[in-house]
Design a protein around this nucleic acid. Sequence first.
DNA 1: GGCCGCGCTTGACCTGTATCAAGTTTACCC
DNA 2: GGGTAAACTTGATACAGGTCAAGCGCGGCC
Lengths: 255, 255
Amino acid sequence: MTNPANELIHCETPRKCTHDFRVNCSNCRLSSLCLPLALNSDDVEKLDDIIQRGKPLQKGEHLYQEGSAFNSVYAVRSGAVKAYRVTDDGREQVTGFYFPGEILGMDGINKNSHACSARALETSAVCEIPFGSLEELSVTLPGLQRHFFQLMSREITEDQQLITLLSKNTAEERIAALMLSISSRNARRKLSSSNFRLPMSRIDIGNYLGLTVETVSRVFSRLQKLEILEVSNKEISILDVGGLQDIANVIIENE
Amino acid sequence: MTNPANELIHCETPRKCTHDFRVNCSNCRLSSLCLPLALNSDDVEKLDDIIQRGKPLQKGEHLYQEGSAFNSVYAVRSGAVKAYRVTDDGREQVTGFYFPGEILGMDGINKNSHACSARALETSAVCEIPFGSLEELSVTLPGLQRHFFQLMSREITEDQQLITLLSKNTAEERIAALMLSISSRNARRKLSSSNFRLPMSRIDIGNYLGLTVETVSRVFSRLQKLEILEVSNKEISILDVGGLQDIANVIIENE
DNA sequence: GGCCGCGCTTGACCTGTATCAAGTTTACCC
DNA sequence: GGGTAAACTTGATACAGGTCAAGCGCGGCC
């Protein structure tokens, strides 16, 4: 009864990992997506030395809070994390979802305090990377410096994609785009790109995409009726990737 | 007849600068906002050595184009620049406006090619900072490395603010927020925070804020009727900053 | 100086999504 | 396992902002 659809492999579900909790970058199966990407094995060990791994976060627990002192960036090892900020009038704005192999917290570098909060959407293991040590190490490992610049740059371009989505696209297009994004991020992690379980609620999805829960729900129903998705609560099957891409890409393209 | 409202000072209008075109970071009046921020005078000279200054861009000229090879980031010295990307279906999305002392082009680091295009909104002088040299220099000047990380982080948080604005706020709130943003950026540059000339068209404003030209125009008219702004074509006077802030901050705040 | 075109404004109408409301299902907890 | 709260779905209605259309005015150019 526990996610039969997800082909769960080592480390994706810490509760099932009975063997060896002493994870390190060298043996982490996410190393090819994560910070070690550009490093040789000697350098990976140097990186590994500065990384701290605490006990897994439970669903709902905070990784950091908006306004708290910035000390580290974080890599998700398993589970899923959402980042959000609270607007002046007290409403929440979800700014991103982070899956295994992805790095969050870089918004805190600017003012030395976190510009948003981050909380676990489900039980999640996270690697903490103290930023001071990372900076020092970057000086001796130019490959690491470059890679970290790239990671920040990627965050910028992804935010800009979201800006475009919010500014130009309909509810249906936004949701199609999010489903495709999650699908391709699953593929990167060698999980199924067509069947997966959404770790976030409809509220979070709507919040992230600038829509109300009701609209999210209606769009899911519509996409199901069109036989593009099969939606069963949080379980998603993409039945027609092409159709989904057509919707996300905005079919208009008339001359 | 040329912008009487703007208190134009040295370098803000290159056409008027008859004296000394050999600008450098040490004598640039923007150095306190720009990259040299965290450097002592010796180090500023090292930075200065890698910076290239071409002739000013004319209105409409491109600084770089989406997809072109990424070699440098750019600091605006005078004028104004807009960054934009073209969506899959051919529409334009403005992702940012850049004023003197601000740095753009960091989106290109990730894939080594520019993720968006940048063009001058008016005659603009720009400093080109070759990224390779900047990386090398960062290794020897940790203050510079840190400052550049901060600049990228600031770009991220600003993008996230825009995401929030687009996702949660009404047309009026978005425009109020943009006016306040331009106002405070002017203040940083010791220009008037209450009277300024918009370098961009209504179309660009609408595009940036996810609104149509008509809506932008209507909101300006409404704010003028409320005696919060005085709008005369591109000339803006903020008559009631408090009122503008109330609108931007979303007055709702009912428990 | 007068003509043309583009950027801007204003009005009338339409539509997508929000809002409000009610009902259903799922998940959690004792 | 049953009770309750939270999450989700579905329907009816309202409204902000989009679309379409027309007119204005400033700036550039011959």
